[in-house]
Design a protein around this nucleic acid. Sequence first.
DNA 1: CTAAATATGGACTGATCATTCCGTAAATGT
DNA 2: ACATTTACGGAATGATCAGTCCATATTTAG
Lengths: 204, 204
Amino acid sequence: MSDTADIQKAIGPKSSGRAPGPGRPREFDESKALETALNVFWQKGFEAASLDDLTKAMGLSRSSFYGTFGSKQALFQRALVQYSQKALDNLQDVADTAENDPVGAMVEALADPQGGSRGCMLINCVTELAPHDQDVATIGRRHLESIEEIIARAIDPDNPDTARDQASAYASLAIGTLALRKAGVPAERIAKTLAQAKSVLSPD
Amino acid sequence: MSDTADIQKAIGPKSSGRAPGPGRPREFDESKALETALNVFWQKGFEAASLDDLTKAMGLSRSSFYGTFGSKQALFQRALVQYSQKALDNLQDVADTAENDPVGAMVEALADPQGGSRGCMLINCVTELAPHDQDVATIGRRHLESIEEIIARAIDPDNPDTARDQASAYASLAIGTLALRKAGVPAERIAKTLAQAKSVLSPD
DNA sequence: CTAAATATGGACTGATCATTCCGTAAATGT
DNA sequence: ACATTTACGGAATGATCAGTCCATATTTAG
């Protein structure tokens, strides 16, 4: 196998933005398919999401799946990155549109993410895969650092560095409550936990 | 199949404490084997721990494995319960032997559990399985509630109920940092996060 | 119209999974 | 010694896994 073929395999087949040259056109929307796959991974995790699950949900044949995304692993990484960007955008948006307590609003948003009981996809995947998958660990670490950065900027826009540890504490707190929620601790108890922590942590 | 056979299957085969009646004696120590299995599950998670992994580590044939533990699922639940008991005992011990700051010591212990980078087995398993496995969710919820209880008693032995929310916040904080650690956030940063949170949360 | 290029459907492959089964070994009770 | 009971080693089973392959379909370029 040639070097270029290796590289081609590593980065995945001619995935997106290809020129409208010759050949039969795709019968599906690649970014829609990616979004669908993201939801399957979010709900089931990486290992438990089988190719049948994925292709059925995405409406793709296996040929189209591999032709477009290269491998389950490659698709998963694209989904993770996409999720991270979307989640960070959403968090920033919460910070920007909060009326009086942006930090509190962000903590609430982190502790009760969109998507019901699936929790945060990145935390799920970090827990499942990061110890044995360096790429996932890196994506997860950057995501967490970005969360801390956004919170720190909201705490003190002028000196975000000094607020970094506090921001990290808020983020860890919110992430910890995700485990409570998954284990079935009542939402009311979790709300009280957050309220307690916020009342003490906030400078008021 | 008879009802008794159903029950027998549900609770697992003649597992422990059997009378030394007739028949060939076991060539292995059941509790040692359970402990070994626990470590495999801890390191790999439930799905990723194959029966080859388990039986090889435990030194059992498949016959002995199924004859003793009934199924992978049943063995896993026994391992989870055993882990929970051990972890709670250890936490209580940290609280009892701490010199001046039992709560802080417990938070440190929760945030940096024994077993290196494997994190807390129960948090791992709750994240992986609780959404789709009611039994695991229940074991996890009870474990988390027990942690909160132990912390609350250390905060205020006379009125542990009033300290419950604060205890829950400490526990969530510590559990959240486990995700940071798995994602490869430097230990030094995590220590600063905990120090910051403790200095603010503690009544001093 | 023909050749080249890309996409699709679905059968196929080889590996691995949890679990079962069977022949044999090793103990007890009579 | 012999029947009974339990344990062991390891082959067999059927399901499922990710990934490949090929015949066919649909497009563009000339």
